[in-house]
Design a binder for these strands. Sequence first.
DNA 1: CTTCCTGCAAAAGTTTTGCATTAAC
DNA 2: GTTAATGCAAAACTTTTGCAGGAAG
Lengths: 161, 161
Amino acid sequence: MTTALHETASSRLRGAGQRYTARRQQLVELFAGSDRPLAIPEILAAGTGLKQSSVYRNLADLEQAGVVRRVMTDEEFGRYELAEDLGGHHHHLICSRCGRVRDVEVPGDLEATLDRALDRLARKAGFASVSHRLDLIGLCQDCAARERGAHVTKRRLRSAE
Amino acid sequence: MTTALHETASSRLRGAGQRYTARRQQLVELFAGSDRPLAIPEILAAGTGLKQSSVYRNLADLEQAGVVRRVMTDEEFGRYELAEDLGGHHHHLICSRCGRVRDVEVPGDLEATLDRALDRLARKAGFASVSHRLDLIGLCQDCAARERGAHVTKRRLRSAE
DNA sequence: CTTCCTGCAAAAGTTTTGCATTAAC
DNA sequence: GTTAATGCAAAACTTTTGCAGGAAG
């Protein structure tokens, strides 16, 4: 089922002069089974036994090889997911309060319209080889209620969960 | 010219129980005069005399009051810009290699189409009060040439500039 | 046996915070 | 005078790196 995925990952890593070790296979499996990009703490907690520095280094290597990519959220740490051609083109629903992220797909015709328009724009500005990143920002159901409080930092919010 | 902006900023801060000090006015002016979101190092280097911790604290307060907002790039530090209703709705051209950012506006009809479609999507997923974030990712002219190199971290890239 | 990967510990970079001082109201 | 804002120094947190040991080819 994920055989093709592993073969692709393997060949991309070898192409970059690197090995597709058991650790890295674990990481790829983890991403393949997730419905959202994963943060490093989540990966560490997932019971792979991987150590922090190895996770960072492996993710950097996998990113270089084009197997995963780093995604941006409003959090102050990074999240990773499968590269677009492996995990499919999709976007993210991001809760602006608690940082929760979920994958979401938008209709194909909207994507097409968007692509055409943005390509034109980028070219006019001298940008090459353009892709886009489209996120939906809002409040998830949990947070919509308790929206309140002053001088609350994001870190405090996270640890309060 | 920026009088209205200052008045709005002032009233929003007071509404949050805070003062619109000279330092904060400087910050708002800085953002108003920029064609891209500013990073903390840039703000510190702009000659305002503000200290690092004050910049962070002021930006947090201004963000809470709805005067500025933090924007995400591929860099590992944050950038800030005026809130959408003060600085205008726009998007960002981001160079995936050097991290350079520039503001860009997309045609109004595309925005409208987008808004309608995304609102529907978000509602279906149980998200409330949604906005969107659309970035164009690519290579700026400077970087399009020298695209190369393995195991190069982003931090190294930045300091190499 | 050579090269890459891993873990540990330590460092670097960004952001937050405690406390005393200064400025705003 | 009371409350908020500032600067300084130190801490917290995320990410990167040096080095020694271990696994993969």
